[in-house]
Amino acid sequence: MTIKAINRSLKNSAFNEMDHALGRPVNPLTSSYRNFFCVGFDSPRGKEMDASPYWDRVSSSDGSVTGFTVNEDGRQALSDHLIEIGDKHKVYDIHLNARKLGLDPDPDNRPIQVIAETKSKAKAAVWREISDVFEDITFKDLMQAITSVDVAIENGMEPEAPAPAPAP
């Protein structure tokens, strides 16, 4: 299971539009499930996007709308902005003992991936998803079944492995 939604709105409207076009990813520099923003054909906003170094015009329809994608410069600028404002969203890997919940374990032992600002919010997101399907599983049951919560991606990057301990 993967929970990929980020509930985020950026104060800077230009960056918010780029973030929206990309599907609000943790890391704007990686491929995302979308990259499209539609504006009125010949609209003032469309003209601004044409003049921006961060957008590329990709389509025009029957004269009513125009589509844009965020280009590599825009992705880099958004990434820099998220770091600058201290965006705290991370991807967490949550491992759990499914048998404790009366469920069959994943044979590949894959974690549940969740995007959240904290470990607690990541656990709560899993609870919201699981409780919709398995009504008999309590929050306490889920917390007892979780074996680990680890940061998988922070600031768009996988965390560095800890440095090896110095030799004695």
Rank of each mutant, 00 (worst) to 15 (best):
D19K: 09
I146P: 01
H20V: 15
P107Q: 11
D150E: 14
N12K: 09
K123G: 07
I6Q: 13
M49R: 03
V39F: 05
I112L: 07
L96F: 10
V58N: 08
D104V: 14
I3N: 10
T30P: 01
N155I: 01
K140R: 15
I146E: 01
F15G: 01
K100I: 00
P28A: 02
Q113F: 00
F37A: 10
I153M: 09
I94M: 07
I137P: 05
N35E: 03
V58R: 10
C38Y: 11
M1C: 13
L10R: 07
L82K: 14
F37G: 02
K140C: 13
P166D: 01
V39G: 02
H81Q: 10
S52K: 02
K140V: 15
A122C: 04
S79A: 13
K11M: 10
G40L: 07
S148I: 06
M143Y: 15
D42P: 04
A167W: 00
D73L: 12
T66K: 07
A77R: 02
Q76A: 12
S131R: 14
K90F: 01
P44W: 04
E160D: 11
H20Q: 15
A125D: 07
M49Y: 01
G74H: 01
V70H: 03
I153T: 09
E135Q: 10
S60P: 00
I85W: 08
V39A: 04
M1N: 12
A152W: 05
A77T: 05
D87M: 00
N97H: 00
H20S: 15
S79P: 01
S59F: 12
K121Y: 08
M1K: 12
D80E: 12
E84R: 14
E84G: 12
F139Q: 11
G156T: 03
K140F: 14
T66M: 09
A77F: 02
V126H: 03
N35W: 05
S31A: 13
I115Q: 06
S64Q: 13
I115C: 07
E17C: 12
N12F: 06
A152H: 08
H81K: 11
H20T: 15
G23P: 02
N97G: 00
V58S: 10
D42V: 05
M143G: 15
